[in-house]
Simulated assay, not measured.
Amino acid sequence: MTNSDPKRPLRVLQLTDPHLTAQSDGVLLGVNTRDSLAAVIDEALKVHGQPDLVLATGDISQDASAEAYRYFGEQLQAFQCPSLWIAGNHDDTPLMTAIAAEFQADPRQWIQGGWHFVMLDSSVHGKVFGELSAEELTRLDNALFEQIELPTVVCLHHHPVDIGSDWMEKIGLKTREGFWRIIDKHPQVKVVLWGHIHQELQQQRNGVDLLATPSTCIQFTAGSSDFSVEPRAPGYRWIELDPSGSVVTEVRRASQFEFKLDESSTGY
């Protein structure tokens, strides 16, 4: 699949951690997650217009309900482009994958606009932390060997680096060495993109952009030792990918969205 206009960069929208529920009035720490998602989608359309591709990087549902996944797919109809979904620790991976398939959002590899996208499953059933199985690591390695000429974005849910937050360090990606061993031998990888941490992060490692993105609902306090949330607006990441391999990205927040966050909570 190719970009409609090869002269301009591929425009990619990342939405992550919506934590939707089956009920329309479902809330997470006081925030109605359907309303916050709607505010983020409206902001993206208002500020950036239509993307060419949407990447949904996990925790789509808080209650792992079919209703939540279908609602998410229906909301993405606001975008006239494909979407790719991966599971997070709150998701029911088989169920999410089945419903993603209804929306043609289940491919694990994707080529568009001169870029290659690899979608990884770092979820572990019944656990908050993430792992990449030996099978998943082999799939990643093979996918990168298959498309060695194309600049590549690798997506997963769990953070594969230390983000300076003690409580989140325990629930990140456990199988980091094997992951980075593969990434390091494939110089066409330009971006590693994830969710899970409910905050903005942008670093570089060996020339690879490491990007994490605010949740479309609640935000975790950056650098906190213990669980902590802060009343920042929900957001998204916009990425423009040039076929040459260059990357331009920014995070935007739906600052007009009004909510009353339960800041006293000790978990979610």
Rank of each mutant, 00 (worst) to 15 (best):
P243F: 02
I197M: 10
L201I: 15
I239K: 00
H198A: 15
V208P: 05
C217R: 02
T216K: 09
A222Y: 05
S224N: 11
G235Q: 03
Q202W: 09
S224D: 11
W238D: 02
R237L: 04
I197G: 00
A233H: 14
S215P: 10
R232V: 00
P214E: 09
I218D: 07
G223N: 13
I218F: 05
I239L: 15
A233G: 10
H198P: 00
V229D: 04
C217L: 10
A222N: 06
P231Q: 13
I218E: 06
N206P: 02
E230C: 07
Q202V: 03
Q219I: 05
Q203D: 13
E200Y: 01
P214R: 04
L210C: 07
W238A: 06
N206V: 07
C217A: 13
T221V: 09
I218M: 14
L241D: 00
L211E: 01
I218T: 09
P234C: 07
L201V: 12
R205W: 07
F227P: 00
D209W: 11
E240Q: 10
R232I: 04
I197S: 01
Q204R: 13
E230S: 11
V229S: 07
N206C: 04
P234A: 02
E240H: 07
D242T: 12
Q202F: 06
I197Q: 03
